[in-house]
Structure formats: C-alpha cells, structure tokens
Design a protein around this nucleic acid. Structure first.
Lengths: 337, 337
DNA sequence: TTGTAGGCGTTATCAA
DNA sequence: TTGATAACGCCTACAA
C-alpha cells in the first residue's frame, strides 16, 4: 500500500488537515510548517490519491475522446494529429486524456458514451467527425454534460465548436481547377451522414455552378475516407466514357487512393489528370506527384478545443464559443499541368 | 447531482448493500430481488460512480500509455496503430486507456510517469520505444508497478515484453539486397540510445559480415525516425563519391524520406538505388515505387500487450511473459531492379 | 495557525 | 437472504 496523507501527518506530528492545506497552498499555514510539510512529503514520496480526490471534489480532471473508427487498423494521420493536440493541451491544463475507440453509429458507441458519462468518468468530452443530426450532441446536451466539437452539425442546439469551412475551401479549389482548364471534375465522397461530406460536397456543387458547369451525377463516386475507398472509386470514374480530367477526394487519404488508381492505369497525374484532397496531412508532401490539398490546422484546433472544454468545465464564459476557420489551399504538382 | 446507489435503494425500500450486490452479480441475492433492482436501476439511469468504486477497491481499471514523442505533429502511423490496438483490447478487458505525450528522456517525462504512478492513476502501464538501460524500467520495477513493454532493453531486470527481432529481420533484408547484387549498402540510423537502433543496426552489420562485405563508417548516416531525417541523411549519403547503391532506413518513415531525396536527385529507385524500411506501415504500399519493408504486427502486439498487462494486474501468472516475434520481409519494387 | 469531524459513493465485513 | 456499519483517502466547514 502506498503512502497516504495520514502517514505524512503522523511522521510530522501534524493533523492531516494541516498537511493537506500546506500542500494545496492555502495561506493559513505558517511558512515554516509548510516548508517542513513539503520537505517530508517529498522525502516520503507522497502524492495524493487521485480517486480519493476525485470522489471528494466530484471531478476527475479528465477529458475524454472516443475515436469514431471502424477498422481496427485505423490509419488516418488525422487522428494522430488530433490526439497529439488533445494530449498536449490537456497536459498544459492539468487534465488527463482518456481515450477509447468505437465504431460510429453503432450500439457500442452509445454504450461507450453512456459508461463515461453516467459513471462520471470524465469531466468533459471532445467530439469529432460530426454527423448530421448527431445523436451524441442530443445526448450530451440532454445530459447537461460539457462538450466541444471539431466540426459543426445541423442540430438546433447551442454548443461550442471549431469548424472548418469546407464549402469555402472546395469553392477555392474548384476555381483553381477551372483555371487550369478543367471542365469535367469528379468528386469522391464520404459517408453521406457526415457533416464534412455535406459541407465539402456543397462547395463542390457551388464551385461547379460558379464556373457555369453542370453537375453530373455520374461524376460522383462513393468513397469512405480511406485510401482503398479512393482507389476503387477512382477506378470507376476513370472507366467512364469521356472520364473526368480532375478528381477531388473528400479527404487526403481518398486522394492518395486516387493517385494510385491513376498510376495503375498509366495516367499521368498533373498533366492528364488533376487530383486534390482535403486535410493537409503530412503524407501529401511526399506523394508522387505532391498532392494539392486544403490544409486545416488539426493540431491547433485540437488544442483550442481542449481549452474551450476546460473553460466550460470550470464554468468560465467562453469568449468565442464558435470558431469557423478557413482551410488553406496548398497547390502542388498534382493539379498543375 | 446524479443518481447514487442510495437513491436506488430508497426507491426500492432496500438497503444499499443489497442493491450493490444485486448489481454486481453476487449469488446471495434472491433472483426476484435482483430482477427488481436491475430493472429500477436501469429506469433511474443509475451507474456506479467510478471514483467511489476506485477508491474503495483500490484500483482504477485503467491502463496508461505515455507516447514518447517530441514533435507536436507526431505523424508516425506506428503510434496510431499501436494506440488502436491498446484501445481495442482495453475495451475488451473492461479497462480504460489513459494517454498522454511526453518527450523522451526529459524531465517532463519523468514527471508524467510519477504523477500517474504515485497518484495511483492507472493500474498498469505500457511502454514502447524502449531505450538501452531504460530509466522507466528501473523506476517501474522499483515501484513494483505492473508494466509490459513493446521492445526489449538491456536492463538486467525481469519483466514481460513483446519484442520483434530486428537483427534477424535486417539480416534477411541484407541477404536480399546482396542477392540483388548490391555491395555498397548504407544505413540511416535512429537515436543511438534506442533499443531498436542497436537491434536493427547490429543486424545490418551482421548481414554485411555474412556477405563478406566490410563495414564502412561513411555509409552510416544519422536519422531520427522521421521523413525529414531520412531525407537529409540520404542527401549526404548520395553525395559521397562512389555512393551506396542501396540504403536502408531504420524505419519506414526514414525510408520514405530517402525515396524523396532520390527522386529529387533524379535517381531511379529500384534500378539505380534500392531502398528499404522497417515497420510495415500502410503508406509503404502507396509510395512510388512501393517500398520493401520488414513488417511487424503492431496492432496485434498492442492487443497482446494489454492482455499481458491486465493478467499481471489481476495477479495471474503469464504463461508466456517474453515473446519474440520475427518480422516479415515484404519485398516490393523499391529493391527490385 | 492548527485540529476535529463529516462526508464524497462505493464495496466488504459481519451480524441478524 | 438481507441490513447496519466501517472503511477507502481526501478536502473543508467549523471549532479551538
């Protein structure tokens, strides 16, 4: 059994109260006593028990994140970066980060959230990969549980979020492609219930309209945000008669799959086919050719989300509860002739 | 404030003892009572407080993992896969997974471990990226704290681990390269205190010896397990007079950087220069050309580590405390003429 | 400035 | 089969 505050108190011939207060920096402890306490506590290797403190203070100093991922070998670097941001900022705020995985929209996901919330396992939760009419938002809101999200939804509920304007980004990208002389531009989509899909896809459509091009159903292929999804979708698109001369992936992983399909078909990306993605993951710098993408500052967003969330937990007023960022169009060889 | 066991007991006109036992599946509760309790508890949305339970049972049902990473934008897919494995298996074992990041070998790392261990924040810890004479092993062992590691060390301490035989893998790879006719084979290393460096590098040297080639200092360049590290190191190596015809990266990311350097210099990988990595991350299938690598089953290792660790926590005897796997040589175009 | 005592919500021991 | 009660280790009115 490890050292408790009692052991320290006994050693010092003081009450546990005094020890507790000395350690927590209360001012009603004589400086001399405080020094002795700190000294001895350190010598004895005392650290307060988190569970006891949690029970007493009714908070866990922990935030939770449930990765919405289905494949066991999730490999989207997006998540690595997101988690890095959450972890770093959590440390700064003296919070721990609890993580688990759950496949989106399945019973297991609901169970995971309930466990944490009803068991008061965490003080707040970060959500990502938002869905249209997201049940998580309903649930957390109804439970009056602090949360902040990466991405917006169409729920008619007020909550803090950081969003990236995918529609705007896509319009910018479309302009660029049109400038490059493209007329037949295809889109490889994500699952239709994802907010990012709605958002980015609408930008694609608006971009077409702005350029005076007509939307063609056959130029939309369904992907799933993975390389393989992009690969398969691109194969279909490139097999069309009068195929597209440009293909946009809903994210970078999709675009990387598209690159591969093109390579297999002997199509030269850049000159014969333009390819672009969305996210700005590091891999895009290293593909052949390097990939044009819409960069979003995932790491920074994650950190900022944690700051918003901890503020919320501490009942502070958020000075900016809704942040809408604009993605950065990074033009590389994959869309240059 | 949320529903406690007291509320449920009051509602049922039972003692909290009975409620607790009914819910925890003790057999000394009449079946009828149990059903009523479960029913009502569910209706009231009761879930036991984790902190209270933790305090009482003196365990947290949580395992911890501290990612040894320095760059904020850590992007090694190795970690994604590792975390996915930890998270999945933790769920299965009914454990939570606590995560934080800390730069290796710095004060912050020490503090992070101490916080969790002294505060009894987690029941056990998983380590990765082991170092030679790893202080973490010393510390955890001295603290009698359950842990299991991915990778071996040279500490003279007994502890459970899963290792991958990098030396063996590298020898296999060297044989392959020699068969392809390479005589001048270079190596881009990792930080020298890492066990994987010692391990893989010794395989490289043994491979040279087995092929009757002499080791040349100038063919070793220092990397740091990142793409950029590999890129810079390769630039140096390829600028040598009579440069290497094959370059091995200490990991896949390094190898991807090497590919890039070659591309910039107009060197054709495969025919003019062989490149290979280690890890088997998914990206290696998608590089140009696809990358030869030594694959290790990171996801499965992570899951298995969690199983070992939870067994350890439950004071079970491990039937196989030391696992040494052999990496799988995947030959792709990057090492074929 | 220090100490006493109650309680956070459980689980476990013991008695009824 | 059930219930009263005592911890688990900490924090914090309140009292001294």
């Amino acid at each position: 059994m490890s050292i408790t505050i009692r052991d320290v108190a006994k050693q010092l011939n003081l009450s546990i109260t005094t020890v507790s207060r000395a350690l927590d920096g209360y001012k009603d402890v004589s400086e001399e006593t405080r020094q002795r306490v700190i000294q001895v506590a350190k010598e004895m290797g005392y650290a307060p028990s988190r569970s006891a403190r949690q029970l007493r203070r009714q908070r866990t100093d922990t935030i939770g994140y449930i990765m919405p991922t289905s494949q066991p070998r999730f490999a989207d670097p997006f998540f690595s970066e997101f988690i890095a941001g959450l972890g770093d900022e959590a440390s700064v705020q003296n919070f721990d980060l609890l993580i688990t995985l759950a496949p989106p929209n399945q019973e297991a996901e609901r169970v995971a959230y309930q466990r944490w919330i009803q068991g008061r396992r965490v003080d707040g939760i970060v959500l990502s990969r938002m869905r249209q009419d997201d049940w998580r938002v309903h649930y957390l809101h109804k439970s009056k549980f602090p949360f902040a999200t990466f991405g917006r939804t169409n729920n008619s509920i007020e909550f803090p979020y950081i969003g990236v304007d995918g529609a705007y980004g896509m319009r910018r990208l479309m302009m660029h492609l049109v400038e490059q002389g493209h007329q037949r531009i295809a889109f490889v989509s994500a699952a239709s219930d994802l907010s990012l899909q709605t958002d980015r896809f609408s930008g694609y459509q608006e971009g077409l309209a702005e350029a005076g091009l007509i939307f063609e159903e056959r130029f939309v292929a369904e992907g799933n945000l993975t390389r393989d999804g992009g690969y398969l979708a691109a194969k279909k698109l490139l097999a069309l008669h009068s195929p597209p001369t440009a293909i946009i992936g809903a994210n970078d992983l999709t675009a990387i799959g598209i690159l591969r399909a093109a390579r297999e078909l002997g199509i030269s990306v850049g000159s014969d086919l333009a390819v672009a993605g969305f996210d700005g993951i590091e891999d895009t710098e290293h593909t052949v050719p390097p990939l044009t993408t819409l960069n979003q500052p995932v790491y920074d967003c994650a950190r900022r989300l944690v700051r918003m969330l901890t503020a919320l937990i501490n009942n502070e007023v958020l000075e900016e509860p809704h942040v809408l960022l604009v993605p950065d169009l990074i033009i590389r060889d994959s869309t240059l002739r």
